[in-house]
């Protein structure tokens, strides 16, 4: 990890997830072989923090870029870092098909239920009843549809090896999220194919609440919709 001032808002989960990834890479001794693909979204500047090779992708095409990098360098650790807009909206086709091809890559999917970078618009993962910049009357199932559960959609794909949904709302969950990231990387190193770790993460700025209240909201509201745990494990 580089020693750089953060651009993230106070209480944002991205910085914490960045650190977990870097800790895993250091502990596993993978810094020299890691190649990351940053998304379009709040984490677009990930390469300013990570001290390993990192490139960008067009919005949502992150798994397509990672697919090709891994095919060119099959021995390197290749992972994507994607938000819920990048992965669950504009990049739905890319994530499903990368999983279905069983690409031997890792996906770190940070789900905070809004588009943070552009000003807190509704995401596919926004909860019902949640007010955002583009769901001013809150998200209603009859007009805006339901929160999308990519993990559950992907578990039916034979090409997908390991899926786990985690959170960072408490120290215990942070430790668990780190374990899941490590397991995803190990799955790839073992050549066992596609894995994805979803991390429920707070966005105090666009949830309109304090960082502490945001952590509580994850536990009390978000986890009601997005159940934590292993969704699939064939590793």
């Amino acid at each position: 990890m580089k020693d750089a001032p953060t651009h993230y808002c106070p209480g944002c989960g991205h910085g914490l997830v960045h650190r977990l990834i870097c800790e895993c890479i250091d502990e596993m001794g993978l810094r020299d072989t890691t190649i990351a693909v940053a998304p379009v979204g709040c984490a677009v500047l990930a390469y300013d923090y990570w001290d390993f090779d990192t490139t960008e992708a067009a919005h949502g095409r992150t798994p397509a870029v990672a697919t090709a990098i891994k095919r060119v360098h099959p021995k390197n650790l290749v992972f994507t870092y994607q938000g819920d807009g990048d992965l669950a909206a504009i990049g739905t086709a890319e994530i499903i098909h990368a999983g279905n091809r069983g690409e031997n890559i890792s996906v770190i999917f940070v789900n905070n239920g809004v588009y943070g970078m552009t000003g807190g618009q509704m995401a596919p993962t926004t909860l019902l009843g949640q007010r955002t910049a583009t769901s001013q009357f809150t998200r209603r199932s009859d007009k805006e549809g339901f929160p999308l559960k990519i993990m559950e959609m992907m578990q039916v794909l034979p090409g997908v090896t390991y899926l786990e949904r985690t959170s960072i709302h408490s120290p215990k969950e942070v430790i668990n999220a780190k374990r899941a990231i490590k397991k995803s990387f190990q799955t790839q190193i073992n050549g066992n194919g596609f894995s994805m770790v979803e991390i429920i993460s707070p966005c105090p700025t666009y949830w309109g609440m304090t960082p502490v209240r945001s952590m509580k909201r994850i536990k009390e509201e978000v986890m009601e919709e997005y159940e934590l745990g292993v969704v699939k494990d064939a590793s």
């Binding site: 190649i35 693909v37 490139t55 992708a57 067009a58 095409r61 397509a64 870029v65 990672a66 697919t67 090709a68 990098i69 095919r71 060119v72 360098h73 086709a93 890319e94 499903i96 098909h97 091809r101």
Partner: peptide, 26 residues
């Protein structure tokens, strides 16, 4: 070498991006 029939043209050109950024001719 690698051939992929991609899920879309958007994906195909992003795969070219990925292969190219990895140093390959794509």
């Amino acid at each position: 070498w690698t051939f992929i029939q991609s899920e879309s043209e958007l994906s195909a050109i992003s795969m070219v991006f990925g292969a190219s950024v990895a140093g390959a001719r794509a």
